[in-house]
């Protein structure tokens, strides 16, 4: 099944942001807690699926010379929609993610998928691709957020899970910790793939 293939590739083989090192800014910035990572991931997934669908539907109408401009307008429209919806229904998350919600527009993953996949494939395949990539991205963000939150504050999704003696390693939730944590995770993933290939 092609659809299943397009869906699952986003979950491991082309898992963003580890395999496709794209869209790193939100990955580093909002992953101070698992909940923020999850929220950001879902918002991005929503925009990704919608823009993939629309781009794929219009792929034969949009002249190739202005396709990037057209894609950007389509993506930006959905981002503004997400901004409005988040303000209306999950305001506290909206406050925490702040500037990174409008910045979904320039997340390279979304424009990248529109250009590399949706503009060449059918609607169903594009939705599968968007869903897979989006969920992969969400899982990565939640994992990274979870690790940083756990080590940095001793909590997970806001609940204390470490024993009372645990001294939080606050470095992890600060800016430098984001880079180093992501770097180490990336190395672990590389190591796992090298082992499974060998």
């Amino acid at each position: 099944m092609r659809i299943v293939q397009e869906f699952t590739k986003g979950l491991w083989n082309e898992l963003p942001p580890f395999r496709l090192v794209l869209g790193l800014c939100p990955v580093l910035a909002v992953t101070t807690a698992a909940k923020n990572g999850l929220g950001m991931g879902l918002a991005t997934t929503f925009v990704l699926i919608c823009s993939n669908t629309l781009v794929s539907m219009m792929r034969n109408i949009i002249p190739s010379k202005v396709r990037i401009a057209a894609f950007i307008v389509i993506i930006a429209t959905f981002v503004v929609a997400v901004e409005l919806l988040m303000q209306a229904y999950v305001y506290s998350l909206y406050q925490q993610l702040g500037i990174f919600i409008p910045l979904i527009v320039v997340n390279c993953i979304i424009l990248g998928r529109a250009e590399a996949f949706a503009s060449k494939n059918s609607v169903m395949l594009s939705i599968a691709d968007g869903l897979g990539m989006g969920l992969g991205f969400t899982a990565s963000l939640t994992l990274l957020g979870g690790i940083r939150e756990l080590i940095g504050t001793g909590q997970l999704f806001g609940f204390s899970v470490m024993s009372a003696h645990y001294e939080p390693f606050a470095f992890m939730v600060k800016a430098p910790g984001a880079f180093i944590c992501l770097g180490i995770l990336l190395a672990v993933m590389n190591y796992i793939s090298m082992q499974s290939k060998a």
Binding site: I62, V66, A70, I74, T77, V80, L84, L85, Y89
Partner: peptide, 26 residues
């Protein structure tokens, strides 16, 4: 090119203003 871009922009503007109106009170 011109028509396609204009149509996309118009559709996007109109649908966003509708959404803005719907979510305003909330």
């Amino acid at each position: 090119m011109f028509i396609v871009l204009t149509v996309i922009c118009c559709v996007s503007g109109v649908s966003l203003s509708i959404l803005k109106d719907k979510t305003k009170d909330k």
